[in-house]
Computed example of a mutant assay.
Amino acid sequence: MFRAAFIALASGLVLTPVQAGVVANYDVLAQSHDRALRSESDRRSVAAELDRHIQRLGERYLAAEQDLHIEFTRIDLAGEYEPWRTGWQDVRILRDVTPPRIHFHYTLLQNGKPVRRGEARLSDMNYLSDPRARGDSDLLVHEKLLLDDWFRKSFR
């Protein structure tokens, strides 16, 4: 029995359950006009933060045999820098007219086969009124809430 387990592990067979996964493409960030995404390090930081969040959502909402492929086509962060404000050049000002926007194409795979494809266009004009964001110091809280809502509605 020990020998069979060793052979199975050595040959690459996994004896643990397969985990659901999300694969996301953030190439669109390189073409963004958002001042917060102008530098490569800023784009990497935003992509990494969103990716961590999306992975957690995938673990929570997707079945073990499901995978989700996402290709972002637009990401506009909530708020905007207002460079005319002296002393506030590095502060993102949140206003009703600058909501977060996230657009993407997605493919849901079940056991490696596509079962659903679609496009999502997420935005929330009332994002400043969302009580879930109050007191949260996360810089991407509004974008994450958009993704939370979409995953909850799409994969209950």
Score class of each variant (00 low, 15 high):
136 D>T: 14
134 R>H: 12
60 R>T: 06
85 R>G: 08
128 L>A: 11
85 R>E: 04
29 L>P: 03
39 S>M: 06
63 A>V: 01
74 R>S: 07
122 L>G: 08
144 K>S: 14
81 Y>D: 08
15 L>I: 11
96 D>I: 10
24 A>H: 04
11 S>A: 14
70 I>W: 04
20 A>G: 11
67 D>Q: 11
48 A>P: 00
115 V>N: 04
11 S>R: 14
126 N>K: 04
64 A>D: 02
50 L>K: 07
76 D>N: 13
112 G>F: 06
19 Q>W: 06
36 A>E: 00
90 D>Y: 09
13 L>D: 11
148 D>L: 13
143 E>L: 07
118 G>A: 09
79 G>L: 00
7 I>S: 13
141 V>H: 10
14 V>E: 09
61 Y>K: 12
52 R>C: 08
128 L>Q: 08
111 N>K: 15
71 E>D: 04
61 Y>W: 13
5 A>W: 03
101 R>A: 14
11 S>I: 12
72 F>V: 05
63 A>W: 01
123 S>T: 11
79 G>S: 05
28 V>A: 12
103 H>A: 15
150 W>Q: 15
40 E>A: 13
77 L>P: 05
121 R>F: 04
108 L>V: 13
151 F>N: 14
62 L>T: 08
69 H>R: 13
6 F>M: 14
69 H>A: 10
140 L>R: 10
77 L>D: 00
70 I>C: 02
134 R>I: 07
110 Q>M: 04
78 A>P: 01
129 S>G: 02
26 Y>T: 11
14 V>A: 14
8 A>D: 14
120 A>G: 07
125 M>V: 10
103 H>E: 14
114 P>I: 07
47 A>P: 06
106 Y>E: 10
55 Q>V: 11
53 H>E: 03
67 D>C: 08
127 Y>V: 08
129 S>T: 01
84 W>Y: 09
23 V>L: 07
132 R>S: 00
134 R>E: 05
55 Q>E: 02
74 R>Q: 12
149 D>P: 09
107 T>N: 07
7 I>A: 15
97 V>P: 01
123 S>M: 03
130 D>F: 00
47 A>F: 03
86 T>N: 06
86 T>A: 03
52 R>D: 04
78 A>K: 02
92 R>P: 05
147 L>R: 12
82 E>P: 00
37 L>W: 00
30 A>R: 13
144 K>Q: 13
25 N>P: 05
1 M>F: 06
57 L>N: 07
67 D>W: 01
7 I>L: 15
132 R>L: 03
113 K>I: 05
5 A>N: 04
8 A>Q: 14
133 A>H: 02
58 G>C: 06
